[in-house]
Every structure is written in C-alpha cells, then in structure tokens.
Amino acid sequence: MTYLIYSALYPSEDFYRTDFTEVTGIKLPEHVEFKYKSATYPDHFGDYTSISIINVGRDFYNNLPKALTEKGLKKNGQKIHTKEFDKALEHTDNLEIESEFTLEEGGGVYYYVGFLTDNETIIVKRLSW
C-alpha cells in the first residue's frame, strides 16, 4: 500500500517516458538523463500536468524537431504557462529556451517541447484539463 501511495505522489521515470511518447509520438532513447521531473496528482477526471527536463544528447536533440512537426506540433505556437512550468524553469541551469513546439488537441490536452541552448536538453510538458 505504501508503494502505491508513493508512486502516485512521485511517478517513476517510466511515467515520464510514457508522457514523452504521448507528446512527441516517438520513444525516448534508453540512455538519457532526467534533470528534473514533476507531476500533479490526477483529478477525478484523470487530468494532470507533467513536466520534465531531459538531457537527450545532441543527435536526438537535433532530429527531434522533424518528429514534432510530423506529429503536428507547431514551432513557436500558443504557450500555456503553469506554476509547474515556472518551477521547472528554476532547474534549467541558467540555460535559455531557444525554440518551442506546441500542440493543443481537442478534449483539453496540450503538448509542449522546449529546446534549451546547450543543444542537448529539452523541456517536455503534458497538460490536460
């Protein structure tokens, strides 16, 4: 019982990998470094916000924009900021966001991927309401 409560409050890395796949349409490489991760507890409709900062390496970083465009995310599209996003920005090691891709799907689901200036780290956010 304790494990179930703990995993509900502090989701595993697999949870964030699943959200990455939902947001981007592709799998996250096995060898990446999660620099930050946070998620809200799902409400009674199953809606939640998750955000992660992931060092994916240069090659994956450079190829990701094409995959995002193919999924329908738009470069520099509409941004929906949340307190979870603002808190995540405190963990970027002073790196700036150099480009952003977003997609809002029907039914209240929003996807975001931001590319940081080190050319190997991204911010991934999934939001539903």
Rank of each mutant, 00 (worst) to 15 (best):
K87H: 13
G107E: 15
Y61S: 01
K75R: 09
G57R: 10
Y36N: 08
D59A: 08
T117K: 09
G108A: 12
L4R: 04
F60A: 06
N55K: 14
T18I: 12
N119E: 14
H44Q: 06
F101E: 12
N55R: 07
G114C: 02
T102Q: 07
I97F: 05
D19K: 12
V32C: 06
H44Y: 08
W129H: 12
D59S: 09
E70F: 05
E120C: 03
E96D: 13
Y48D: 01
Y110S: 06
T18W: 10
E33G: 00
F34C: 01
Y48H: 09
T69W: 02
V124K: 08
R126T: 01
N76I: 01
E84L: 13
L116S: 12
G108R: 11
I5S: 05
K35I: 15
G77F: 01
E30S: 10
F60Y: 11
K66Y: 09
P29S: 00
K79C: 10
Y3N: 14
E13A: 12
E70H: 02
G46T: 11
E13M: 15
L68I: 02
F115R: 12
G57V: 11
G108D: 04
E33N: 09
G106M: 15
Y6T: 09
I123F: 03
S99W: 10
K37I: 10
E30C: 01
